[in-house]
């Protein structure tokens, strides 16, 4: 049993069948990539994991529990964190505050009324946030406005914020889309480090094959809303169906 079990998931948008009978199993502590051409349904599938979309049929189980019908914040509290295609961070807040919020969420749950205490005097929160900033190599940027950072730093911060909650499953939707080569390589290194140092499962959607083949241990190829094949990177590279459906475009 994988940590994430997807059974017979279908999703329609009006007349368009975005997903049809998707089955997928993500094994614990692996990096699982989902690839496929534009419009294949990758983001739709991911949105079904985090409560943004509810599939028409099928089930999505995380660690033996169904995620369907739960709100995004509830699913997050179960242990799934998500990185967005364009970094979603608190732009108006400082980098340090950005990092403190997930630490609060981990300690206090989805709602805690503390309107009188000074947030900077919450020792354990400040320490945990600072440690994560050091891990992310961003300690020097702690007082910066998050919105004023480079795209690569925003991505790094967003990943750090997700990790600060110590999730069991980290979902990434095209984390390097629109990034310069150097930023992409930094992100690859960061994700490699995370994978080596933490007990974490990573599911990643990515177009950049360099990223996919540097990280993934399993790859699922999605085309027109159905999984075509699932295999190791070596086998995927040589797979004729994949070359035809997907890699063929770029080769």
């Amino acid at each position: 049993m994988g940590i994430l079990e997807v059974k017979d998931v279908s999703k329609r948008f009006g007349g368009l069948k975005a997903l049809s009978d998707v089955n997928l199993s993500v094994a614990e502590n692996t990096v699982h990539a989902i690839i496929g051409p534009n419009g294949a349904g990758k983001s739709t599938l991911l949105n079904c994991f985090v409560g943004k979309l509810i599939p028409d049929t099928g089930s999505v189980m995380f660690d033996g529990q169904s995620v369907l019908g739960r709100k995004p914040y509830e699913i997050n509290q179960m242990g799934i964190s998500r990185v967005f295609q364009t970094p979603e961070i608190f732009g108006d807040l400082t980098v340090m505050e950005n990092m403190m919020i997930p630490v609060f969420a981990k300690r206090d749950g989805h709602f805690q009324m503390n309107a009188i205490g000074d947030m900077m005097k919450e020792k354990d929160i400040v320490e945990a946030a600072e440690a994560m900033l050091v891990d992310m190599n961003m300690a020097d940027k702690r007082h910066m406005h998050a919105a004023s950072m480079s795209r690569g730093d925003k991505r790094r911060l967003e990943i750090g914020m997700c990790l600060a909650q110590e999730p069991r499953l980290l979902l990434l939707d095209e984390p390097t889309a629109g990034m310069a080569r150097a930023d992409t390589n930094n992100t690859i290194d960061l994700l490699k480090e995370i994978k080596d140092q933490r007990d974490i499962t990573i599911a990643i959607i990515e177009h950049d094959m360099h990223v996919v083949f540097s990280l993934a241990e399993r790859i699922t190829v999605l085309a027109q809303g159905t999984p075509l094949v699932e295999d190791t990177p070596q086998n995927i590279k040589g797979h004729p169906k994949v070359r035809e459906a997907y890699l063929g475009e770029t080769a």
Binding site: Y73, N76, F84, I101, F104, F111, M161
Partner: peptide, 20 residues
């Protein structure tokens, strides 16, 4: 107060950070 500022800044991120 920080949570309130976070609401103004980015509700999506707040939702996906386990906060309602």
């Amino acid at each position: 107060g920080m949570m309130l500022r976070a609401i103004k800044s980015n509700q999506t991120r707040l939702n996906y950070t386990g906060l309602s």
